[in-house]
């Protein structure tokens, strides 16, 4: 008995976590998938009715807005964060004297809660008292910057705050990448008299392809899950102009009492995440096992 226990102890130790993951991740996904195929409203029902919830979802103008916002937000947030991160990393890679301090400053927003970030930017972008009022106070009486309360522009304030929060992290990723490039090749190129900018464009940046992919995956993941920032900054408003899939799902689940819609929108979110993450993880795991 004791012998059996000793040989099986590793499995016994791992079992609770594994069972928990099976139930609380995979079982719950299955539950949500199942309910997304029913007529559930305030309470879950379990008779499968087909794809009615998804039809309702795709007919919903609010979901349409949420998905459109996700495209705008995702494209700008990922694109600008990557460019800014790369530029900052290259600038910081020039033997800067106070590099450590600058890195610390660029990266600290990542330690903040999105709710804190949202609160700060909400105040800065407040048209009556924030940036707009300040510029007006400088004498530019006609200056307006009311994006926060303008339904057409409010989503861009979310982009601004998100870039502020995450671009330093992308910088850190790229900086690590720059530092891991083979120095021999670079030295050889320099001996050949190739200018620094060309060394970056033709040698260093192309060799960082895996880092670009990692940064993209992380940012895309952050974009799809974006929730707190919108809640704190705009509350999804004005109206539902800045709704994202995550806020739509939350509204359906906890304030509208529409479980069917909540489940189907959550499933769409998961499919989008999986379409991006699964190929990446698969290749990572395979590369590791090789």
């Amino acid at each position: 008995m004791a012998k059996w226990f000793e040989t099986h102890l590793p499995k016994i130790v791992l079992a609770p976590s594994f069972i928990a993951i099976l139930i609380f991740v995979y079982g719950f996904i299955a539950w949500t998938a199942w309910v997304s195929l029913t007529r559930s409203r305030l309470l879950p029902k379990y008779e499968i009715e087909g794809f009615i919830q998804y039809e309702r979802l795709f007919d919903s103008p609010r979901w349409d807005t949420a998905m459109n916002n996700l495209y705008i937000f995702g494209a700008l947030f990922i694109g600008v964060s990557m460019i800014l991160g790369l530029v900052l990393a290259i600038l910081l890679d020039q033997q800067i004297r106070v590099e450590g301090a600058i890195r610390t400053i660029y990266l600290y927003p990542m330690a903040l809660s999105m709710i804190v970030t949202g609160t700060a930017w909400k105040w800065i972008l407040n048209p009556g008292l924030g940036l707009e009022a300040m510029v007006k106070g400088w004498g530019f009486e006609t200056f307006t910057f009311d994006w926060l309360v303008n339904p057409d522009m409010a989503i861009y304030t979310v982009v601004m705050a998100a870039i502020w929060q995450s671009s330093g992290f992308v910088m850190a990723l790229f900086l690590a990448g720059l530092r891991s490039v083979d120095t021999e090749i670079i030295r050889a190129a320099q001996i050949d008299g190739i200018p620094t900018w060309r060394v970056y464009v033709s040698i260093i940046i192309p060799s960082m392809a895996p880092i670009f992919l990692s940064a993209f995956i992380v940012l895309a993941h952050l974009a799809i899950k974006a929730f707190d920032l919108v809640i704190a900054l705009t509350g999804g408003g004005p109206g539902y102009a800045t709704d994202l899939p995550a806020t739509y799902m939350y509204a359906m689940a906890f304030s509208r009492g529409d479980i069917g819609q909540a489940a189907s929108s959550a499933m769409i979110m998961m499919l989008v995440v999986f379409a991006i993450v699964v190929p990446y993880l698969y290749s990572e795991l395979r590369a590791r096992n090789d």
């Binding site: 594994f18 991740v25 995979y26 996904i29 309910v35 959550a266």
Partner: peptide, 18 residues
């Protein structure tokens, strides 16, 4: 691998059953 995939799910998908 199963545990790793669990890191990446959007938590919206587990909110209701949880």
């Amino acid at each position: 691998a199963l545990m790793l995939f669990g890191c990446f799910i959007p938590f919206q998908v587990v909110l209701l059953p949880m």
